[in-house]
Design a protein around this nucleic acid. Structure first.
Lengths: 198, 198
DNA sequence: GTCTATAAAAGGATAGAC
DNA sequence: GTCTATCCTTTTATAGAC
C-alpha cells in the first residue's frame, strides 16, 4: 500500500530541500520525485512555503525516532550519548563524501527573510536538539563541577556541531569535524570533577 | 568620479548576496542596484556564477582592511584582538536586528553543489580568517599551557562564531551569540598558564 | 482527491546598434 | 564599453474536467 499523497510530498520535499536547498528545489522537482501531480500538491498546500512548514514540522516531530534513538542504540553513558549523536553526524558527512549539511542549519542560513512560522519552526528544531543534549548532561550532572551551566554547554555543543559540519563541507574533509568534536570533548573533560574523570 | 562598472557590479552583488543569498538574488537585482545595464554585466562576466567568484575574491582580499583592521583599532592585547573580532560580529548582529548572517558561512551552506572555484574560494576565506585568529593566539603563545594546539583553537573560534551567528539569527536574539562567546572565553582562560592568567 | 493543460511571471542570457 | 530589445527556459500557481 502506497503512503498517502500528502506524506509522499513531504518526504520528497524533505529530501530535496536537504540535497539542493529550498530555493533551488522547484515544485516540479517535488512533483516528479513524489510522483504526484500539480493539482494534488496544491490541493494539500497553498504554496511552496507551506510545504516547507510541513517539512520542518516533520523534522521537529522526528528528532527522537529518526535522530536520537538511532544514534543512541546500545549507548548507556549519558555523556557518551552526546558523542554518539555527534558520531551520527560524522557518519552522514562520510556517507555523503563531505557534502552533508545539517538540514536545519542550512535552511536557517539560506532563508534570509523567513516567515515567522518558518523561523519559529527552525528555532523549535534547534531547541529540541539542545534540550536533548542538555538532558544528557543533566543525567551526568553529578560528574560536573558544581555550578556548571549545562544549558550553555548544550548550546555550545550545537554550535560546535554546526560549525564543524560547515567546515567539513567547505573543505570536503571530515577531519575538520573531527577536530571540532575533539576540542569539545577536551573542554567537557576539563569541566568534570577530578576524582570522577576518566 | 563614479567607480568603474565592474566594481559597481561586484559591490552590488556583494551586498545583495549577503542580504538575500545567492539564488534569491537575480541578475536584474544586481543591475538595478548597480545602475548597470545587462550588456555591460555580461561584457565583464560570462554569467552569474562568475560574479559570485568575484565577490568571494573581494571578501578574501578585503578581510584585512575591511574586517580585521577596523575590529582591531585600539586593541593591542593579542587575545583581546580575537574577542574584538567577535565583538564586531556582535555589532553586526545588533545593527541588523539579529538578521545578520556571516556572508561566507551563509554561502557555504546555501550552495549545495558549488563549482570547484567557488568552493575553494569559500575555503580560502575561512582559512584567511582562521590564520588571522591563530596569529593572535601565537602572539600570546607564552600565556598558554605548553603544547596547546593553537590552530585547533582558532578553528574552534570560527566554529563557535558561525554557530553563534546562526543561533542569534534563528532566535532573533543576540544573547545566543553572547553565550557562545562567553563559553569560548571561559574555555580559553582555562587553557592559560595559571600565574599569568588574569 | 486526481488529472491535464496552461496561464502569468521571473529568470538567465544574447543580439546587434551605437 | 554601453545601450535597448528580446529570446528562451524555468517557475509558481490556477483552471476545470473527471
Amino acid at each position: 500500500m502506497t503512503k498517502n499523497t500528502r506524506q509522499r510530498i513531504v518526504d520528497a520535499a524533505m529530501e530535496l530541500f536537504w540535497l539542493k536547498g529550498y530555493s533551488s528545489t522547484s515544485i516540479a522537482d517535488i512533483l516528479s520525485r513524489s510522483q504526484v501531480n500539480s493539482g494534488s500538491l496544491y490541493h494539500f498546500f497553498p504554496g511552496k512555503q507551506d510545504v516547507l512548514v510541513a517539512v520542518l514540522e516533520a523534522y521537529r516531530d522526528g528528532i527522537g525516532p529518526m535522530l536520537l534513538e538511532p544514534a543512541w542504540g546500545g549507548v548507556d553513558d549519558p555523556l557518551e550519548k552526546v558523542f554518539a549523536l555527534l558520531a551520527r553526524y560524522r557518519r552522514s558527512i562520510v556517507d555523503t563524501e563531505c557534502q552533508y549539511g545539517c538540514p536545519i542549519g542550512s535552511l536557517a542560513l539560506e532563508l534570509h527573510e523567513p516567515d515567522p512560522a518558518v523561523r519559529e519552526l527552525l528555532a523549535a528544531n534547534f531547541t529540541a536538539w539542545v534540550d536533548a543534549v542538555e538532558a544528557c548532561f543533566r543525567e551526568a550532572a553529578y560528574r560536573f563541577e558544581p555550578g556548571t551551566d549545562l544549558r550553555a554547554l548544550a548550546e555550545l555543543t550545537l554550535n560546535v556541531m554546526e560549525g564543524g559540519v560547515m567546515q567539513a563541507r567547505t573543505y570536503r574533509d571530515v577531519a575538520c569535524f573531527d577536530r571540532a568534536v575533539a576540542q569539545l570533548r577536551r573542554m567537557i573533560e576539563a569541566m568534570l570533577v577530578r576524582d570522577l574523570a576518566e
